[in-house]
Design a protein around this nucleic acid. Structure first.
Lengths: 217, 217, 217, 217
DNA sequence: TATGAATGAGTGTTCATTCAT
DNA sequence: AATGAATGAACACTCATTCAT
């Protein structure tokens, strides 16, 4: 019984992983249940034993994608001492964000690729979770501001959009195996905090090797 | 003759605009020719009188999206005096970028939504155009750096990715009718150049009203 | 008026010829009005000024194909003296058949290609004309038989089927510019009348150069 | 397992038979997958479980049509004793040809009807098989000639075209249930070998009852 | 006479989903 | 738990035909 249950759970995971990979490569509409089944070494009909529908599957994939990032950043922040500075928190959050999207890369990329095509109800559900992640960043910035670490004229809302935009975009160009996550996180924080013309800047000298030509929608 | 020509051109434009709106709302795969036809007040078969295929249509939409931005930024930069500072150039470029994506908002959003699902050959063609836009920014930053306007330790590649990422993202939250483009452009440039903790900062005080809750992939 | 009429007639003929060529190359269902229009240097809609429908067009093409053969064979037989032998009549008919299908080759080939796909009412109408042609051959054979030129045991019905089958098939392999029609007609008659093992035989020695590898349905 | 296999095979055969009948009646282009599905008591989409495409289906039908004839004739010739005369061989081949096209009548007629409209690659593949059948007849005639059974002036190429033409045509008028195949084969051979005016002639006296009015393209 | 533009019925094909086994 | 077979609704696209100009 336990064994069967375990076996079932394994199968379920196999299907989910397969789905993430296929959604990542072909988007939501471009993905067929047959393709997922092939990837999971199953027949199309069998998927329905584990998941009720295609929407059910994409939903699960989407959730994992955002939850991994949220949880990881949450955990990293909690691991920090009370005394940590805003800069340290920002760096830590960026680091956690990056390592999470690497960890569950297939799910993150699947989200990036598929989210735009997913039926609205599912997207709404996912948006809710992602807004919660936005709130985390809002708090990080607000805290730093209160501590007086920011320029008094700084526009926090804009800054948050700015950071999240850039952070979301990393998934497009950041590749594991290039420059260490720590470096990128530090550079990123430096740009955000000190600016390009600023005098502070822990911004590393050389060009990052984990960087590709960017694209623009 | 002239009238017929005009009539044809108008119909064609009507179809293209309709396509942009539908692609924007449903993505590439999620868009049906019937939906476009409905939006254009035509029957599905009639679209084919104006465009050879769905791919032909999305191709046209994609091109307009990026070309509007590229051309507008190009023109704005050329309109600047030789003596313009890097900051001025960056501000001008951001302003031109924002006004272009507002001008052809449907096309830009359609691109954002559909690009990931489009057949590779079409995407490749579009990527080429978008890379050219990346090169424009590369040059803006490199020039400013040479003029000594940037922190010597600044990582230009990362900065470009940062800016383009944030800029690309604006399409998600920036709505016309909110805060004036000029203000947002100035704030944006301030964050980029001076950082949040910087001392410079033309960054306006209040929160931008043209700002919505951000989302994350 | 007369001029306009003439012009119209010319246009009509141009459309008909174009139709024959296209039907010949693509069959009935495989032929589009657009293709015919292109071939006739017209726009698709304009065909309808000359012919009421696609069926109308194929009908006209079909009629010309069979009528040319029937008329030509009829005329050739009538041109023969009363005293002509059965063999002479058979040879003359074969000659007339071959020259007719060469003369209106596009129409004959169009018939061969398209007939099987044409709506039944049209096919029925055409079949009626073709049966009349069969009757001509029936008479030729019956006359020769009565004159005592045939083996008394000869099965005329079967022979007619045999001859018409082989004759119909010529359209598949007989090409103008190869061996002269006269020769082929004589050889044909020889096989029919004398057989392969027979002693008569005007059948020429060498292989006919107008002959290709045959095919079989 | 065995049962499932059988069930699948039966369904597949049902579809194939249905396809042959519909192709026979409406030609290639005139046949819709929906019509085949109806005939096979299935829904259109279900056909694709058994055959990849319409082309796949017509290909299979075409192959069966020619293969049945070739194999049957081949077998009949091999069953003949070494000492069999040319006439015997010709008769045997005709008999085998006729019985084969009766056996798989739908497939043969489908071929006759559809071949001209089928995409070239498929037609080429089938032509290859049909040329092999032509070669069989070439050999029959050449052997008989070498044995001295033919008039020395006989034109073998023309004769082959003649015979194959007439034989191909039989499919148009020969109906099972009429005169026995044996008789028709004997008469046919007689016409070919002895001619209408010849003195030999096993050609039967009465008119064949399995004979219909012929048609001509 | 001829055309540009449009229509609507239909085509082959795909695919999420179901269900008996 | 898994599969083979089937379904039905949809899809992109084609085409004969119409009609105002």
């Amino acid at each position: 019984m336990t064994k069967n249950l375990a076996k079932s759970a394994i199968s379920q995971k196999r299907v989910l992983d397969a789905a993430a990979r296929i959604f990542r490569d072909y988007g939501y509409a471009g993905t067929t249940m047959r393709a997922i089944a092939d990837e999971a070494d199953l027949k199309a009909g069998s998927i329905y034993y584990h998941y009720k529908s295609k929407d059910d599957l994409i939903s699960a994939v989407l959730d994992i994608g955002i939850r991994a990032v949220t949880d990881n950043v949450d955990k990293a922040l909690k691991a920090l001492p009370e005394t940590a500075t805003g800069r340290e928190r920002i760096e830590a959050a960026i680091r956690a964000h990056l390592s999470a999207i690497i960890e569950v890369g297939d799910y993150t990329l699947a989200t990036r690729r598929a989210l735009g095509q997913v039926p609205e109800p599912i997207r709404a559900r996912n948006r809710y979770m992602r807004d919660a992640y936005g709130a985390i960043w809002q708090k990080i910035l607000a805290d730093a501001h209160e501590r007086g670490e920011f320029n008094t004229t700084a526009n926090l809302s804009l800054a948050r959009l700015f950071i999240l935009g850039a952070l979301n975009w990393t998934v497009e160009w950041f590749k594991p195996g290039g420059r260490p996550i720590d470096d990128v996180a530090r550079e990123f924080a430096a740009v955000v905090l000190d600016g390009l013309s600023g005098n502070g800047g822990a911004a590393a000298a050389g060009p990052s090797e984990s960087v590709r030509t960017p694209t623009l929608p």
